[in-house]
Simulated scan of single mutants.
Amino acid sequence: MKFRFDHNNINVFNLEKSLKFYKEALGLIEVKRHVQADGEFILVYLGDGDTQHSLELTWLRDRTETYNLGENEFHVAFMVDDFEAAYQHHKKMGCICYENKEMGIYFINDPDSYWVEIIPGR
C-alpha cells in the first residue's frame, strides 16, 4: 500500500477575493471546479502548473462570518525559484505577515488570514 499527497483544503469566506489573491501572490491557476447542484458549496482546486498537488478552496453559501483560525498554527508552504523577486512582489502587495531572516523564510497572509510560507528553491 502506498499513499501520496493529492491536495490540501482551506475554507474561504470570499471565493473571488481568494482566487484573485492566490493568482496574484503565487501564480496558482484553477485546475478543477465543483459546484454543488443546489449551490450549497463550491470547491475550486488550484494548481501550480508543475506538480500534481493542489490547494482546494471550499466556499460555503450559508457562511455569514469569517473563519476563526484559532492560533493559526498551520500553514501551506511554497518553494520559489527567485526568492528575492517573490519577496519584493509580496512586499508590494502588502501581504507579508512574518519574516524569519535567520531561517531565510517569510510568510504571507491570504484574505482569510491563513499563513502561507515562502521558502527559497533548493
Rank of each mutant, 00 (worst) to 15 (best):
F13I: 02
F13Y: 12
N14H: 09
N14C: 05
L15R: 01
E16M: 05
E16A: 07
K17R: 12
K17H: 11
S18M: 03
L19Q: 00
L19H: 00
L19T: 01
K20D: 08
K20C: 07
F21P: 01
Y22V: 05
Y22K: 01
Y22M: 01
K23V: 06
K23N: 08
K23P: 01
K23L: 12
K23F: 12
E24Q: 12
E24P: 04
E24W: 05
A25P: 06
L26S: 02
L26K: 00
G27V: 13
L28K: 01
L28N: 04
L28H: 05
L28W: 09
I29R: 11
I29L: 13
E30H: 03
E30D: 04
E30K: 06
E30P: 02
E30F: 05
V31G: 12
V31N: 10
V31T: 14
V31C: 11
V31P: 05
K32H: 14
K32W: 10
R33E: 12
H34S: 10
H34A: 09
Q36I: 12
Q36K: 15
Q36R: 15
A37H: 14
D38M: 08
D38S: 13
D38A: 06
G39P: 08
E40M: 10
E40V: 09
E40F: 13
E40G: 15
E40L: 10
F41S: 09
F41P: 05
I42H: 02
I42C: 06
L43E: 13
L43T: 04
V44T: 05
V44G: 00
Y45Q: 07
Y45H: 14
Y45P: 02
L46P: 01
G47I: 02
G47D: 02
G47R: 02
G47M: 03
G47P: 01
D48G: 04
D48S: 03
D48C: 06
D50M: 09
Q52C: 06
Q52Y: 10
Q52E: 15
H53C: 10
H53Q: 12
H53E: 10
H53D: 11
S54L: 02
S54I: 00
L55V: 05
L57I: 01
L57A: 01
W59G: 03
W59R: 03
L60W: 13
L60V: 13
L60E: 06
R61P: 04
R61D: 09
R63P: 11
R63G: 08
R63F: 11
T64P: 05
T64F: 10
T64K: 15
E65M: 10
E65A: 15
E65T: 15
E65P: 08
T66E: 13
T66C: 09
Y67T: 11
Y67A: 11
N68W: 09
N68F: 14
N68D: 15
L69R: 01
L69S: 01
G70K: 03
E71Y: 10
E71F: 11
E71A: 14
E71D: 14
N72D: 04
E73V: 12
E73L: 15
E73A: 14
F74W: 10
F74A: 06
